[in-house]
Every structure is written in C-alpha cells, then in structure tokens.
Amino acid sequence: MIEIKNLHAKVDGKDILKGVDLTIRPGEVHAIMGPNGAGKSTLSYVLAGRDGYEVTKGSVTYYGKDLLALEPEERAAAGVFLAFQYPVEIPGVANTTFLKTALNAIRKHRGEKELDAMQFLKLLREKTKALGMSDEMLKRAVNVGFSGGEKKRNETLQMAVLEPKFAVLDETDSGLDIDALKIVAEGVNALRSPERSMLVITHYQRLLDYIVPDHVHVLAAGRIVKSGGKELALELEKNGYRDFGVNEAA
C-alpha cells in the first residue's frame, strides 16, 4: 500500500506540490488528471526520487517503508517504476543489454539470483511477443531513433520485464496517435494484477477510455482538489478544468 500524506515539494525554489494526500491499495489503478502546471510530473519525479525535486513537508509510506529515504535505484528495486513522459535515449547501449542490466541489478538488490543470458533471453522473448514488439527493436540502442509510439511501447516492455509493484505512468498518451495509444494501453492492461498498483497521470480523458481507472483525482495548483470514480474523467472532458479555478484554452 502506498500512502502519500500532505506532500509538499519544491523545484528550483518554487513550491509546486502543496499538500498532496493519496492512498493507493494493491491492485488499484488511480488516475491523476489536471491542467498544465498543476504538478503532475513533479509528483511522478518526487515518487521516483529525482534530484532537484525537494520534498519540504509530508511523507510517502510504501509498504511500511519511508519511500523518500531511498535512492532512486533502491526504489526501483523495491518495485517502483516510472514510465517516462519523454523516454531517454542511450546511444550504443542495446535495448536488451539495458533491460538485462536493470533486471539483474534489481534481482541482485533483492537477494535473488541473477539471470544468465539464456534465461534472460527466454524471458524477454515471452514479454516481447505478448506486447507485439519486434526482436529488431531489442537490438537497437535504447530509444534511439524510436518513434513516439515505439518509445512508449518500449517503456511498457520495461515495465513488463521489471514487474513492478507500483507503476507510475507519466503522460503515457502524449505524442501517440490513436492506434499507438491502443497498443500501449493493451500492454498496460495486460499488466494489471491484484498485486500491482498503478498511478496513471494524464491531461486528457482519452487514455482512460482504454486504461479504465478505479479512482480519478484532479490535481490543481499542487493539491488534489477532487476525487471520484471513472465518471469524473468524463465530467472533466466535458467541462474542462474551469471549475477548479483554472482557465485553459486546451
């Protein structure tokens, strides 16, 4: 269970999160919607432990542990996964190498036996096939020359391989056409399980047609201002974020 309590955070000296409260139970999918600048990406980076995102108040308890005390790689080993809005390119490092290094680092951290090349390739083949990805994509350097859709699919593949307990999907729909969106959403849905929680961050309701959340929250000006079921997303789609004191043309 993940409990975020009264979370305040600063970026570049500016207060962005101003008291976020959120509880996510195993198996639940929560969506966070909100206008630009509400602090959605900040929340995802704070949860993942990125440098420069300074928590000034509040706590995040992750299965009984103080999540904020852990290094980013320790959080990853504990099962926290962030699907990036803008996946990063790493020239010269094959996707397979990257995935194997990551998986074995996590396994080692957990005191599990590292997978050898054969075991890993077998696992990877299964996951790739399930996501309808080509072997060719595995040989290419991490995200280099990938289309927007391929990058997001690659994030999904990483999630499938690393099998997190808590996945944060940051604007996974951004830059995707409808076909690509469907493929990625299918991949994510396949990973839903009673043990795995997800936090889906999005600006638009569209993604939530495909990844149907259990709970929807509205984040505005650094706080969760409204929570509800999946119908809240539809309401937002119709009325925009006006009701939350935000004027937005989009």
Partner: peptide, 13 residues
C-alpha cells in the same frame, strides 16, 4: 542527468 536518472529509475546504480 536525464540518462543517469533514467538508468537509476530502472534499478541501475
């Protein structure tokens, strides 16, 4: 920083 954080988020020191 982006590359380093990306790797670390995936569990790599």
């Amino acid at each position: 920083e982006d590359q380093l954080f990306y790797c670390r988020q995936r569990g790599i020191s």
